[in-house]
C-alpha cells in the first residue's frame, strides 16, 4: 500500500473541483438549514435548475454569461414555487415537498417530452467553451511533485474557490446584520418572532431563494467543469452530501461549509484509496470475499456511521460552539 500516493490523492481531492462545488452548495444550504432552520431536502433541485438553466441558454444560442443569470433566476423562481405553499406550514412539509421536487425535476428533464429542450437522457454538452477560451494560464502542470493540476483544472479551481470566497463574504455581510439576527430568531422560535413583528414567512422565503441561488451557482460550476449536464447526475445523494458537509462543519457557522467540504472530500478519497489497497492489493484473509466494486458501498456505510457518531457526540460540528449546543432549544 502506497500511503504517500493515497494521501496526495486525498489532498488533491480536498481542494479539488468537487470540494469547491460542495463548499459553495453547502454555503447555500447552511443559510437555509443552519441560520433559518429550514429543512430543504431537495437542494439538488436548485443545483439542477441552475445547471440546466445555463446549459439550455447556451444550447439555444445564448452566451454563457447570459446563462448564469438565467440559472440563478430559475433557482429563485423554484424557491418561490416550493416555498409559497409550504413555508406557512410546519417544517416537515417543506422537507417532503423539496425532496419530491428534486426527483420530479430530475425525471422531468429526463423525459422524452422535455427532450427538445433538455436533450433527455443524453444531456447537453460543451456549453462552457466560452469560459475555457478565456483561460489565461499557459499549458502545463502546476504544483509540487505529484500534487499537481493541469492548466484547465487550475482555471476551474480559481473560479470555484473565488465563488466560495464571494459567497462567504456575502453570507458574512448578511448573517452579521439585523437581517441575519431575525433569521436566527426564526430558527429558534417562529411564534416568538411573529409576536415581535417579524414577517416570518417573508424571511423564510428569502432564505430559501437566496440559499437556492447559491446552490444553483454550485450546480453551474460543476456543470462547467464537466462541460456536461445529465439528468442522472442530479440524484438525492447530492443533497445528503451537502447536509453531511454542513453538519460536519457546524450548522450556522460561517466557515463550517468550507471546512466541512474540504474534510469530507479528503476522507472520501482517502477511504477509497485505503480500502482499495486493502481489498485489491493485499492478501487479508477475511477481506477475500470483497472486491474493488465493494469499495463504494462500504465507503457510504462508513460515512453513514460517521454522521451518526457526529450527531451523537458532536452535533455542533467542528466549528459550532459546545456551549451553544448544551442549550437544549426546546
Amino acid at each position: 500500500m502506497d500511503i504517500v500516493k493515497i494521501l496526495i490523492d486525498a489532498g488533491r481531492a480536498a481542494i479539488g473541483v468537487p470540494a469547491a462545488a460542495y463548499a459553495l452548495s453547502s454555503i447555500g444550504l447552511n443559510l437555509q438549514f443552519g441560520y433559518t432552520g429550514l429543512l430543504n431536502f431537495g437542494h439538488v433541485a436548485f443545483m439542477l435548475v441552475g445547471a440546466y438553466g445555463m446549459a439550455i441558454t447556451v444550447d439555444l444560442g445564448g452566451s454563457i454569461w447570459l446563462g448564469v443569470p438565467v440559472g440563478i433566476l430559475a433557482a429563485v423562481i423554484l424557491g418561490l414555487i416550493l416555498g409559497f405553499p409550504t413555508l406557512r406550514l410546519r417544517a416537515d412539509y417543506l422537507a417532503i415537498v423539496t425532496i419530491a421536487a428534486g426527483e420530479i425535476l430530475r425525471l422531468a428533464v429526463r423525459s422524452s417530452w422535455a427532450a427538445p429542450l433538455t436533450k433527455g437522457i443524453f444531456g447537453i454538452q460543451r456549453f462552457a467553451d466560452e469560459f475555457f477560451d478565456l483561460n489565461p494560464i499557459p499549458v502545463g502542470l502546476y504544483g509540487i511533485g505529484r500534487f499537481r493540476f493541469d492548466e484547465r483544472t487550475v482555471w476551474v479551481l480559481l473560479l470555484g474557490w473565488s465563488l466560495v470566497a464571494l459567497a462567504t463574504v456575502f453570507l458574512w455581510k448578511l448573517t452579521r446584520s439585523p437581517w441575519g439576527r431575525a433569521m436566527r430568531a426564526i430558527r429558534e422560535d417562529e411564534d416568538a418572532a411573529l409576536s415581535l413583528g417579524k414577517n416570518v414567512f417573508g424571511y423564510k422565503l428569502q432564505s430559501l431563494m437566496i440559499g437556492g441561488a447559491i446552490g444553483a451557482l454550485a450546480g453551474m460550476f460543476l456543470a462547467i467543469d464537466q462541460q456536461n449536464v445529465n439528468p442522472d447526475a442530479y440524484i438525492p445523494l447530492l443533497t445528503f452530501y451537502a447536509f453531511t458537509i454542513v453538519i460536519l462543519g457546524g450548522p450556522g457557522t460561517l466557515f463550517g461549509p468550507i471546512v466541512g467540504s474540504v474534510i469530507f472530500w479528503f476522507l472520501f478519497e482517502f477511504l477509497d484509496g485505503v480500502m482499495t489497497a486493502l481489498i485489491v492489493e493485499m492478501d487479508i484473509g477475511f477481506l477475500d470475499a470483497l472486491d474493488a466494486t465493494d469499495v463504494g458501498p462500504i465507503r457510504f456505510a462508513l460515512f453513514g456511521a460517521g454522521l451518526m457518531w457526529l450527531m451523537i457526540y458532536r452535533p455542533q460540528g467542528l466549528f459550532g460552539s459546545k456551549e451553544e449546543m448544551l442549550i437544549d432549544a426546546r
Partner: peptide, 11 residues
Amino acid sequence: TFQLTRSLARL
C-alpha cells in the same frame, strides 16, 4: 407574550 416562555435560546 406566551403562557410558556419563548426565549430565543441560542441568541
